[in-house]
Amino acid sequence: MQIVKLPKENLDKFVGSLSKFGEIHAPIKKDENTYLFSKIEDLSKIELNYNRTILPPKKYFLPPTETIFRFSPEKGYEPPKDNLNRKYVLLGVHSCDIHGLKILDLVFSGTYVDNYYFTRRKNTSIIGVSCIPDDMCFCRSMETDFVEDGFDLFLSDMDDSYLVRIATSLGDDMVRASQSLFKEVDKEDIAEYKRKSNEMKNYFKIGLELYNLPEIMDLEYESKIWGEMGEKCLSCGTCSMVCPTCYCYDVFDELNLDGKTGERRRRWDSCLFKDHALVAGGLNFRKERSSRVKNRYFHKQRGFVAQYGRPSCVGCGRCIQSCPAKVDIVEVITKIRSVDYE
C-alpha cells in the first residue's frame, strides 16, 4: 500500500480540497467529551482528536429513519426520488467504526442486496483516522484496532503530521489532486510510526478474551446472569441505537391526510424493545426482558461467529458509555468467563 505524509499545517487545505469529491462530514465537538459526525461548513470545527461519536457512521448508510416507498392505490409502491446518489466524504472514521461498516456490509449483501444501503455506501468515501483508546475502548480484544481495507485513505497521527495510507484508486485521486501538500515518508517517520505502534497496546485499560467464548456462552446459556441482567437492563434500546453493527429496523406505513396515499418507512429498532419478537395474535417469543438481553449478547458474541466467523461487536465502547443502567459488556463477558461465577 502506498503511504505518504501530510504535514498537519496542510490538513485544512487538504480537507478543503475534498469538497469536490463530495459533501464533507466529520466529527465535531458538541459538548465536553461529546462528539458527533456532522456536515462540515467551517473546517475549524473538525475535531480529529476525539474518543467516540454519539452515533456511529452507520447513520449515513442506514439512516435512523427513511422512506423506502411512496404508495398510492393507483400506482402501488414507488421508490422515493430522494437523491441517494449524492456524494459524501466521511472524514475521521476510527478503525473500529470502519470494521463496523464492514460488518454491516455482510448483513446488507448476500442473496438479497439492500440497495438503499449500498448506493449510499458506494457514494461515500471514507477517510479513517488513528486514535488513542480511552478507558471504554476494547477494540484490541475484538481485533478491530487495526484496519486493512474499507477506507479510501487512512490518516495515522504522528503529532506534527499524518502518515496517509492510500487504499483505493479514489483515495489516490484525492491525494493527487493536492499533490503539493504531501511529502514522502522518510526514515525518521518510519521509526516514529513503529515507536507509536509498539506503544499502542499500553493504552488499553479494559479487554475481554475471545478464546472459546462461543462455547462458553453455550455452556452458560442457562446462567443466572441473564436473569440478573434482565433486572438491571431498562430495555431502552440505547445500546442498539449507538452500536455500529446493530442493524435491526422496523417498517411501517404512514398515510397522508387524503387517507389513500402515503409512505412506507423504516426506522431503527432494537431487540430489547418488548414488541421485537411479537407476532400477530399476541404471541411474543421474547416476552421476558432477560430473554431479550440474552438474545442481544448471543447474537453479537455467539451467533455472529457462527454466521460470519467473528463477533459483531467491534469494541467501540459506545454501549458502555451510553447505558443509563451502567450495563458494561466487558464486565458481563468477564463475569460469564470467570471460573468462580456460577
Partner: peptide, 24 residues
Amino acid sequence: LERRMKCGVGKCGHCSVGYKYTCI
C-alpha cells in the same frame, strides 16, 4: 416455524431464532 418475518430477506432482525433468521 412462525416468527415476525418483517423484511423477509434477512435484514431487519425480527425473526431471529438463536442466530438464524426464520425468513431466510
